[in-house]
Design a protein around this nucleic acid. Structure first.
Length: 244
DNA sequence: GTTGAGCGTT
């Protein structure tokens, strides 16, 4: 199969953008993410059932359904945010899942010059997008900077951009990263394995996989035998099984 | 009064 372009849109009603395929007819998730930062997969409306289906994603490579992308418009998937407690999802309510707002996180800013103030930080980061807050961590006694701080942006896109590059701040190269030790109630619990309740007996592992694929790469589907009206779906990463 | 990988008093 030679190079072709498939149409991808942020939403079914949005203007599609053409994304190039690879020589073997697959599409790289990175090609999609280049146009839609933060994308974690694709889905499409099955012309026969009129249901949304996920596009198979294996190790960053998207595979055409039935080996043919056809003339469909594919819709971008983004990691969803979870407002629910724990990881419970009703299969019945999953149909109501919509594109979730992506919550931003505090970013740690490493390598700050000793002299850099919060105003300096704010002035610098505002050039990327709207800033919610900045902090410079200081020794409480002396008031000296500890050489690192935090920043939070309004837009997730801004955060993605800021993490992706190095920053020259007051004459030093600095890095912005997602902090690790953050067990605050601020962030939702993340899990790669979700509980799917209210399953009906006719649901198959393949059907569940087909459905949940649209939210990320599915690595496992577990349905207890005999029938127990629930299932577990496991994703490849912890950003996918989050909903609202 | 120094320093240069890391992980946030409220």
């Amino acid at each position: 199969m030679s190079e072709l372009y498939i149409r991808v849109a942020e939403d079914e009603n949005e203007e599609p953008m053409e994304i190039p395929s690879e020589d073997d007819g697959t599409i790289l998730l990175s090609s999609v993410a280049a146009q839609f930062p933060g994308a974690c997969g694709l889905r499409y409306r099955n012309p026969e059932s009129q249901c949304m289906r996920g596009v198979r994603l294996v190790e960053g490579v998207l595979h055409a359904p039935e080996n043919d992308w056809g003339n469909l418009v594919y819709v971008v998937n983004y990691p969803k945010d979870n407002k629910r407690k724990m990881d419970e999802i009703d299969a019945a309510s999953a149909v109501k899942v919509k594109r979730g707002f992506q919550k931003t996180s505090d970013l740690i800013v490493l390598g700050l010059p000793w002299k850099t103030s919060e105003q300096d930080l704010k002035d610098y980061f505002t050039t990327f997008g709207e800033v919610i807050m900045v902090q410079v961590k200081r020794d409480l006694k002396t008031g000296n900077s500890k050489g690192f701080g935090f920043v939070r942006f309004t837009e997730y896109e801004t955060q993605t951009k800021v993490i992706a590059q190095r920053h020259m701040i007051d004459g030093r190269w600095c890095d912005c990263k997602l902090p690790n030790s953050k067990a605050g109630p601020d962030e939702p619990m993340r899990s790669r394995k979700i509980f799917v309740g209210r399953c009906t007996e006719d649901m198959t592992t393949d059907e569940l996989r087909q459905y949940f694929m649209q939210y990320g790469e599915v690595t496992d589907v577990f349905i207890p035998k005999p029938f127990r009206a629930f299932a577990f779906v496991t994703f490849a990463d912890d950003q996918s099984g989050l909903w609202q």
